[in-house]
Structure formats: structure tokens, C-alpha cells
Design a protein around this nucleic acid. Structure first.
Lengths: 249, 249
DNA sequence: CAGGTTTTTGCGTTTTTGTGCAGGAAAATA
DNA sequence: TATTTTCCTGCACAAAAACGCAAAAACCTG
């Protein structure tokens, strides 16, 4: 990895999360802590980041620190993302839907990972594009402006053509009886196709979405190989799902 | 292998992967590392690549990580965008390439306009999505990270399926003798397909790009219905093109 | 086409750059 | 205050770049 490349990655991380730890960066990029420190030093004198003890901060950090907004339930989603990332290995073909949880997954992908990501979600694609080592395949078709995802028969046909190793579904509603449900007919069609085209289906859901339903049926629990939430696997909330035969993490 | 040939190959690799290592290039092309270094040096002073320790980076590398602030020659591009917009009417199917000029066109679209825009350029698509009344069709395929556009046979096949009313091409180089040329093989393939799929081909170019050439041929002037620049139609610079039968605006 | 010039390329040698490591200083934490 | 973490300095080593040089190829040119 080139020096400039590494610094660009660091900068991207800083701008994304508003802060970076030198300790975590050095394990991510697999260089010594000194190198990271020197990089942060350089970026600091260039005015790109603010260097602090233990890492660096984004310039806009001061502005966005007090309002604790950002993405809704960000920490929960980070936990989910980390669990999901553990399932992705080099060389895999990964199919993903859209949604903020998927977005967080995209942001947290380790830079050394070499895999192919396939999606029709514009925000997700934008994140994948920033990654140095992953190949990005975009599913094309008409764009649904509110869900920012490509929808339509062409998109579904394309998804049917791929055979992915794993599929990550951001979930709007999941319930032990009704399985996964959603509220956008076209998005549901896509998710169905994605499930059919993947060897393994992983469902990402924050606990809040559990035991809720939406009007349109996506699939039953039997189609789901793994359910990832921010909870501990033995949490009582998850029992109905394990009882139904779904693995949880 | 000729020197020019080699440099074109290097440039292509840089544009394709955003970076090249001198070490890998010299084994690929089978020349000494010095030669590669000299090539990269030359390409760097020509502004084609950014030379760094260990290899070189694409110029658009930075854009991938830091959002492009000041667009180059913004005012000229605004003028061009306005002229182009005058050609778009309600109900039209519009095919566009990528590039900052196209982006400016996207930003300046009047909000009442109802049309369908088709593109594989991610930045362009993002702009179109913000528009209240236009339909957006995204051409899918593998994403080229440096040009932020989808490239590949699937994308070309999709473009061939459409029959657009008008096609706007952002232009890297145009010349009265060689016509339109570019430096990325895959992007050229797309542009060719777009030209074939459109009733009318409009070429957008800032004057600076005129009378310059790039290694790869896109099309001759005979394919172009209209050439839009920021210049007055009777500007002397445009004479070679009007003489060749191209309408200018 | 002979002779000279320029361009291009490869090979040592020297210099610079990038990186990691060790030990002590400084800062945060308890 | 004690202890851990982070930081800084100097140093060593390896990789890459710069430089000078020479051989070879290409190219003028009368």
C-alpha cells in the first residue's frame, strides 16, 4: 500500500467517523503505530485533520460533537456491522440491499479486504467505491428516488444472474411469525431476488425493528441463515427466532 | 514495445486501478525499473498521473476520497450547461456520459423539466436524483473507481437497448482531424455505444480541450450533430469544425 | 549509405525516502 | 502517586529514486 493511499484512507475514515484511533488504524492497515502517527502528523500540518493524543479528529468535529445526531442508533448499527464483517472473507461475492445499517457495514469494511460487492443502492455503492480493494458491481435500472435504490424488472433479472456467496439484508421489520416484511413493493421484489441468488442470507436488524411487521411479505424465517442484531446471542428477545431455527449473532 | 505504446498502457492501468506500482509494471512490461520511472516522470510532468514514491496515482484519486470542491473552469462549464439545457424538452430520453461538464448540466436543469435521464456516471446520477421531476435510469455494471462510471459489456449492452432522443458527451479531447479521442479504453467503448443509441449527438467541450488529442479514438466529427463550447459560435477557434460540417453553439 | 547525432534503455553507485524498533519523556488514567 | 498508554528521538535497514555513464537503436543528412 502506497503512502499517499494510506493517508487518503485515513482521511476518509476521519471524515466519516469524525475521529480515528491510531491504535485501531495500525491494526486495520497493518503497519506500525509509528507510521500511523507520522501520517497523522503530516495530515495535521497540512491542515487536513486535527491531531490529538491517541488519534486524530475531523475539522468539523467541533461542530457535530454536541448534536448527538448523525445516523439514528449509530452505535447499535456499528455493533451489527462488526458482526457482519466477520462473515466476509477475501474473494467473496457479496450482495447487499440498502439502508443505514448496510451503509455502516460499508463504512467499517477493513481496507485489506478483497471482495466483490454487488448492490443497487446508491449510497452503499458510494461507500464501496471509496474502498481501496473491493470491486463494485452496480445493479442498474430505474432509480427509486425515495429509497435511492434501483428497482424494476431489469434489476431483478440482473440479480437473478448472479450467484453470491452471501447476502446482507437491511431489515425494516422482522417478526417470528411473519418473517421479514417491508413497505415498498418494488424493494421487496428486489430483496426476494437477492435471497434467491445467494448461498447464505444474513439479516441485519436493530432490536427496535424486531417483532414489528410491515404490509408486504419478503420471506419467512426459514430463508434466513443468520440474524444479526446488536444484542447478545442469548438475549431473551431473540429466543423466538432461535426456537424457529434461525441462527443468531 | 514502443515507448508511446508503453506509456499508453501505463496510463490505462493508472486510470483503471487508480494506482500503479513501478515494481509490478516493470515485470508486466518487461523493462527495467528505471524505464518505468522515467515514463512515470514524463507522464507526471504532462499532468497525466501523480507520481509518488513506489509508483503513481490517478489524478482523480484525490477526488475519490475528498469531495471535489472548486470545479475547474466552472464558469465556462456553466455557460456550456445553459446552452445544452436549451436542447432538452419535456418527455425526452436523454443519455449522458460523465465528467464535470455533464455534472454542471445536471445541476442547472430547470426544476419543471420532465424528462428521462439515462447514465452510468455515479456523480451525474446523484445530481439527477435530486431533481423533482426527472426519471433516472441507471446503467449498471462494474464500477470504474477513477472515472466513477459503470463500464463493461453489460453496460454497453444496456445502452444498445435504448434509443435516446439526445446524447450529451463530456469531452476530454476534440480535434478537427481526429474527432473525439479519450484515454480510457473502457469509457471509450461506452461513449461509442451511446453515440450509436442516440438520434442526436451533442458534444460538450471547454475551449481548452479543443485541438487536443488523446490516445484512443471515440468517433469522427461526422457523428457529432452539435458542438457546444463556451465560445461564441463565430469564434475563429471553431472555424475548423464548422468547415468540417459540425454545427456549433 | 557512411557518418554523425539524438533517443532510448539498462546498469552501477550514491542519495533519499519510508518503515520499524528501542528507550526514555510526556501525557492520560486510576 | 503509580501505572498504563501514547509520543518523540535517534537509529538501522530496505526499498525506491536520482545520477552518471555507456551501449544500442533510431533518426537524420549530405
Amino acid at each position: 500500500m502506497l503512502k499517499k493511499e494510506r493517508q487518503a484512507y485515513i482521511l476518509h475514515q476521519v471524515n466519516l467517523h469524525n475521529k480515528v484511533l491510531s491504535s485501531s488504524l495500525c491494526t486495520e492497515i497493518n503497519v506500525s503505530e509509528d507510521t500511523i502517527r507520522r501520517d497523522l502528523q503530516e495530515l495535521a500540518v497540512e491542515g487536513k485533520v486535527i491531531k490529538v493524543h491517541g488519534g486524530a479528529l475531523s475539522h468539523s468535529f467541533n461542530d457535530v460533537y454536541y448534536p448527538t445526531n448523525g445516523v439514528y442508533s449509530l452505535n447499535e448499527k456499528k455493533v451489527i456491522a462488526q458482526k457482519a464483517i466477520a462473515l466476509i472473507h477475501n474473494g467473496m461475492f457479496v450482495l447487499t440491499s440498502g439502508g443505514t445499517t448496510i451503509l455502516e457495514l460499508a463504512r467499517c469494511l477493513p481496507p485489506q479486504l478483497k471482495a466483490t460487492f454487488i448492490s443497487g443502492s446508491i449510497p452503499a455503492i458510494l461507500e464501496y467505491m471509496h474502498h481501496p480493494n473491493i470491486e463494485v458491481i452496480l445493479i442498474g435500472d430505474k432509480i427509486s428516488k425515495n429509497s435511492k435504490i434501483t428497482v424494476g424488472s431489469e434489476a431483478i433479472a440482473k440479480i437473478r444472474q448472479v450467484k453470491a456467496d452471501i447476502c446482507f439484508l437491511g431489515t425494516n421489520a422482522i417478526d417470528a411469525v411473519h418473517g421479514i416484511t417491508d413497505n415498498d413493493w418494488e424493494v421487496v421484489q428486489l430483496k426476494k431476488a437477492m435471497i434467491e441468488s445467494s448461498k447464505k442470507v444474513v439479516c441485519l436488524a436493530i432490536a427496535e425493528k424486531m417483532n414489528t411487521t410491515q404490509p408486504i411479505h419478503v420471506c419467512g424465517l426459514d430463508k434466513i441463515d443468520l440474524l444479526i442484531t446488536e444484542l447478545q446471542p442469548d438475549d431473551a428477545l431473540l429466543k423466538p427466532y432461535t426456537d424457529a431455527g434461525v441462527r443468531v449473532a
